[in-house]
Simulated assay, not measured.
Amino acid sequence: MSVSQVSNNAATGGASGGIAANDAGAMKDEFLQLMVAQINNQDPLNPLDGTQYLSQLAQLSTVEGIQNLGSLQTQGNTLMDTLQVLQSTQLVGKQVSVPVQSLSLDQAESLTGKVRLDQSAEDLRVRVTDAAGNLVQEKALGPQQAGDIPFSLDELPAGLYQFEVVAKNGDASQSLSPFLNRTVEKVSIPANGGDIQLQVAGLGNLSLFSVSEFLGEAA
């Protein structure tokens, strides 16, 4: 095998002489051995070009560096995943803010949350309906500027409810989902990978990344 063949194998990930395809370090060692052998056995009247050796050696060093960088990146990703899992387990018993369209209450409860407006509204209302579609509560928040507008709802009995925010400007109206403050009951780590799942009171399992805000201890 020639020196150039060793260099090409390293660059393309091929295997040679029993050396693993991704083992750039071993290929580099073989390259040096071949280079020394060729120098020792070169024709004195037609010496080999040393510049070519140095160029190929630099190429192998680059491949080896990329391989090492990939290994470090994999280790870093594993560490980040582990830290994320550890931090997520500390969310049990804490409150989070999540967008809600429907909510199941096991017992009577007063609710708090916020409305997130991208633009101002002349009239803003939070509407709550039961499973049959009957309006059970409406919270008038009046005219509001763009931003986060907090609200609280009177106590609702146990049951299934639908939530809607209606923002009006003149004859035009916009329907939005409110963000409610709910408690994390359990954290699940999927066995096959994927997003960490939070079991949130009244909402079931949600992806960690669906949470809008982490609020701390439940009131």
Rank of each mutant, 00 (worst) to 15 (best):
M1S: 03
S4E: 15
A10Y: 07
T12E: 07
A15H: 11
G18A: 09
G18Q: 08
K28H: 10
F31N: 04
F31C: 03
L32E: 14
Q33Y: 03
L34M: 08
Q38I: 02
I39F: 11
Q42E: 15
D43I: 14
D43V: 12
P47Q: 13
P47A: 13
Q52W: 14
Y53I: 08
A58L: 12
Q59D: 06
L60P: 12
V63E: 15
N68E: 08
S71C: 01
Q73W: 02
G76Y: 13
M80Y: 07
D81C: 06
D81S: 15
L83C: 04
T89R: 15
Q95N: 11
V96T: 05
Q101S: 09
S102D: 06
L103K: 05
D106I: 08
T112E: 04
T112W: 05
G113T: 09
V115R: 07
R116I: 06
L117S: 00
D118N: 15
A121P: 04
A121L: 11
D123E: 07
D123R: 06
V128P: 00
T129C: 01
A131G: 01
L135R: 10
L135I: 14
A140I: 03
L141E: 08
Q145T: 14
G147Y: 11
D148I: 12
D148A: 14
L153R: 05
L153D: 04
L156T: 08
A158S: 10
Q162G: 09
E164W: 02
V166A: 08
N169P: 01
D171H: 03
D171Y: 06
A172H: 11
Q174I: 12
L176H: 12
S177K: 13
P178N: 14
F179E: 04
F179P: 01
N181Q: 13
N181G: 01
R182M: 11
T183K: 15
E185M: 15
V187M: 02
A191F: 02
A191N: 09
N192D: 12
D195H: 08
I196V: 09
L198P: 04
V200E: 02
S210L: 03
S212T: 07
S212A: 11
L215W: 13
A219R: 14
